[in-house]
Amino acid sequence: MPRPVVITRPAAQAGELASLVAALGREAVLFPLLEIHPLPDPAPLQAALAALERYALVAFVSPNAIDAAFAARPMWPAGMTLAVVGEGSRMALARHGVTDGNATILRPLDSRRSDSEGLLAALDKSLLPGKEVLIIRGENGRELLADALRAAGARVTTVAAYRRSAPVPEAGQFAQLVRLIESSCDWIVTSSEAMRNLVEIVGQAGGEGAVAKMQQQHLLLPHARIAESARLMGFMNITETGSGDEGLLAALQSRP
């Protein structure tokens, strides 16, 4: 029997990928390792979105940032220049009706670098001095993108659009996790924060022995930085995939 595929994305983002996994004839198991919450005070986000026309570039750090921003302002000015860090974010824009046909969407040229570094490599920094740039992200996001754009001469505003937290599993979820660890699964983990939460929750469920068993599971990771985090946590059975669902599915299809 094919191994189950454990999808650890936030619950609201996992359904489409689960359907695609099922279409491959694989069992999709949802076990979210991050929860996404609205901000307690949406006023800063709303103020930034009310002034979109002032920005020469609006950059999103994740699909969550896109969903939160379009929930706050569903209709955006036509012809804006937007930037995303990966294929998942490009697809999130498309779900809100924004495509290469009605906007300029900048993104990493190398699908293996779906991060701020990859986006920075794709930007023409000679066009940035004096330009207003808005970065929409989660709370406590990395400063690398904002710092690099400021160093290039841009006037950068960052605004949080959502809050991340680790889930608090119920007793039944701990039991489910132990069963998954006892079997052989393919685990899709799409952020370093989720990797850290996984190790923490596994330790709560079964202690060091469970963590040791989890470290033997196969991980599908869409980014080199996540893979490096996993290796530092003791995981070695790792497949680095391309960006977005397409890369994850291709990696699954290449395995028996």
Rank of each mutant, 00 (worst) to 15 (best):
residue 233 M to P: 07
residue 63 P to R: 05
residue 84 V to M: 04
residue 24 L to R: 14
residue 182 E to K: 11
residue 92 A to M: 06
residue 178 V to A: 15
residue 74 P to N: 03
residue 154 A to V: 04
residue 48 A to T: 00
residue 197 N to E: 05
residue 185 C to S: 13
residue 15 G to C: 13
residue 6 V to R: 02
residue 147 D to F: 05
residue 111 S to L: 15
residue 90 R to G: 11
residue 5 V to C: 04
residue 155 R to K: 13
residue 234 G to S: 12
residue 153 G to Y: 10
residue 55 Y to H: 08
residue 8 T to H: 00
residue 2 P to A: 00
residue 209 G to L: 13
residue 153 G to F: 10
residue 68 A to H: 00
residue 7 I to H: 02
residue 101 G to T: 07
residue 109 L to Y: 03
residue 68 A to P: 00
residue 164 R to G: 03
residue 67 D to Q: 13
residue 227 A to M: 10
residue 201 I to F: 02
residue 138 G to F: 08
residue 114 S to D: 06
residue 207 G to V: 02
residue 225 R to W: 02
residue 126 S to N: 06
residue 47 A to M: 07
residue 244 G to F: 09
residue 22 A to F: 00
residue 120 L to E: 03
residue 244 G to N: 09
residue 185 C to T: 15
residue 110 D to R: 09
residue 202 V to Y: 07
residue 178 V to M: 14
residue 246 E to C: 12
residue 88 G to R: 06
residue 13 Q to R: 09
residue 54 R to G: 05
residue 217 Q to A: 15
residue 222 P to Y: 08
residue 133 V to Y: 04
residue 254 S to G: 12
residue 93 L to M: 04
residue 227 A to F: 02
residue 55 Y to R: 07
residue 103 A to L: 07
residue 182 E to T: 07
residue 107 R to C: 13
residue 29 V to Q: 09
residue 108 P to C: 15
residue 86 G to Q: 04
residue 188 I to D: 12
residue 113 R to M: 15
residue 84 V to R: 04
residue 40 P to V: 03
residue 75 M to I: 15
residue 139 E to K: 14
residue 38 P to A: 14
residue 157 T to F: 07
